[in-house]
Design a protein around this nucleic acid. Structure first.
Length: 321
DNA sequence: AAAAGCCACAACCGCCTCCAG
DNA sequence: GCTGGAGGCGGTTGTGGCTTT
C-alpha cells in the first residue's frame, strides 16, 4: 500500500504558474491568510495541489522576498553558514532576510560551488581540495624554502593532472611572484631574505593556505603589485627565452600579471587574438593522424606547450638574488 | 540565420518530521 | 504509544533564454 498522495492529482495543473493564477493566490492569502494549504486551492479557485501553492507563495509571491542578485556580503554569509550548517538550506535562509531556501540552494549550485572549486576549495568540506594538496605543498616549498629548479621539474611531472585554466593560473601567479621578487630587490638590495619579504607582502590568508595561494588570481592581490614591469625584467626574460619560447604567450603572461585581464577566463578567451601565429595542434587517432582545427583545442595545446617552456624559467629565481 | 549547447532558476518529487486525535 | 495527515525540506528535473558554433 503506497502513501496517500497529499492531494488528488487528477485534473490538477502542473508546470509554470500563469499571472492569473498568481493573482488568485495573492488575493486569497491577502484576504484570508493561507490557513491549511490542503484546502486553499479549492477555496481560492485554483486547480493546483496545496503543496504547489505553498511553494509558489513561499518562493516567489511572498511580499517580503528580496529579488535580484546576491550581494558580496550575502555570498560570504552563505559560504560561512554552509561551512557550519551544510546543505540545511532553510537554516541558511533564516539568516538571510528576504532570501528563500530554494533561491539560496540554486545560487549555491550554480555560482558559489563553482567558484569554490575554481579556488581549490572543496565545497562540501570547505577545505583545500585533496587533489591539489601535493601541488600546494610543492609550490610552498618552491617559493619559501627549497631550491627552485628541482621543484620546477616536479611541477612539470604533475602537469598532466592540471587543466588549461589551472596551468594558466599557476603561470600567472608565478610571474606575479617573480615581479614581486624583482621589485623588492630593486628597492631593497640589502634585504637578506627576500622570501620573507614576499611573505610580508602577501595577505595572511593566502600565506597560511597554500592551496588558496595557488588558486588565487593575481588580481586578488593587486594592492601588492603597484609597480609596472621593469624594462630590466623584460630584457632578462627575453634573454632567458633564448629564442626558443613563444613570445606571444610571454607577453600575455606579463599583461596578465600586471592586471590586464579581469580573470583567467578573460585571458583564455583572448589567447587567439594574442597569439601571433596560431598553429593547429596535431592529434593521433588510432589509424590516422588528423589536424585538429578546434580553436579550444588549439588554445589548450598552446597553453600546455608554453607552460613547459615557461615554468622552469619562472621558478628560477636565482637571477634576482 | 539556424542549430546546438549551456546555464539559471522555477517547480516538482518523494522522504522526513511534527503533532493532533 | 500509535497512526496518519500536513507541512517542511533537500535533491532533481524541465524549460526558457542566452551564447556559441
Amino acid at each position: 500500500m503506497g502513501r496517500v498522495p497529499c492531494c488528488d492529482k487528477n485534473g490538477l495543473k502542473k508546470g509554470p504558474w500563469t499571472p492569473e493564477e498568481d493573482q488568485k493566490l495573492i488575493d486569497y492569502i491577502q484576504k484570508h491568510g493561507h490557513g491549511t494549504w490542503r484546502t486553499l486551492p479549492k477555496n481560492a479557485g485554483l486547480a493546483r495541489c496545496g503543496k504547489s501553492c505553498r511553494l509558489r507563495w513561499a518562493n516567489y509571491l511572498r511580499p517580503d522576498i528580496k529579488r535580484g542578485r546576491f550581494s558580496f556580503e550575502e555570498e560570504e554569509t552563505i559560504i560561512q553558514l554552509h561551512s557550519v550548517l551544510g546543505n540545511k538550506w532553510s537554516a541558511v535562509a533564516a539568516h538571510l532576510p528576504g532570501r528563500t531556501d530554494n533561491e539560496i540552494k540554486n545560487y549555491w549550485n550554480t555560482h558559489i560551488k563553482k567558484r569554490l572549486l575554481r579556488s581549490g576549495i572543496d565545497p562540501v568540506t570547505h577545505r583545500p581540495r585533496l587533489d591539489l594538496l601535493n601541488l600546494s605543498s610543492l609550490l610552498n616549498t618552491v617559493l619559501f624554502n627549497q631550491p627552485a629548479r628541482l621543484d620546477a621539474l616536479r611541477l612539470l611531472d604533475i602537469k598532466p593532472q592540471l587543466n588549461t585554466h589551472e596551468l594558466l593560473r599557476i603561470a600567472i601567479n608565478l610571474m606575479h611572484q617573480k615581479q614581486n621578487l624583482f621589485k623588492h630587490n630593486q628597492v631593497q638590495e640589502s634585504q637578506p631574505n627576500y622570501y620573507q619579504t614576499i611573505s610580508q607582502q602577501l595577505p595572511s590568508s593566502l600565506l597560511y593556505n597554500p592551496a588558496q595561494f595557488i588558486n588565487a588570481s593575481p588580481w586578488q592581490y593587486n594592492e601588492v603589485n603597484s609597480f609596472n614591469l621593469s624594462e630590466n625584467l623584460m630584457a632578462a626574460n627575453s634573454k632567458a627565452s633564448n629564442g626558443n619560447m613563444e613570445q606571444p604567450m610571454s607577453s600575455l603572461l606579463y599583461e596578465a600579471s600586471n592586471g590586464e585581464f579581469s580573470c583567467e577566463q578573460n585571458l583564455y578567451n583572448n589567447l587567439d587574438t594574442k597569439l601571433s601565429r596560431p598553429v593547429p595542434s596535431m592529434t593521433s587517432n588510432n589509424s590516422s593522424t588528423t589536424i585538429n582545427n578546434s580553436k579550444e583545442d588549439e588554445k589548450d595545446s598552446y597553453c600546455s606547450n608554453l607552460f613547459d617552456f615557461h615554468i622552469p624559467d619562472l621558478l628560477d629565481t636565482n637571477e634576482f638574488i
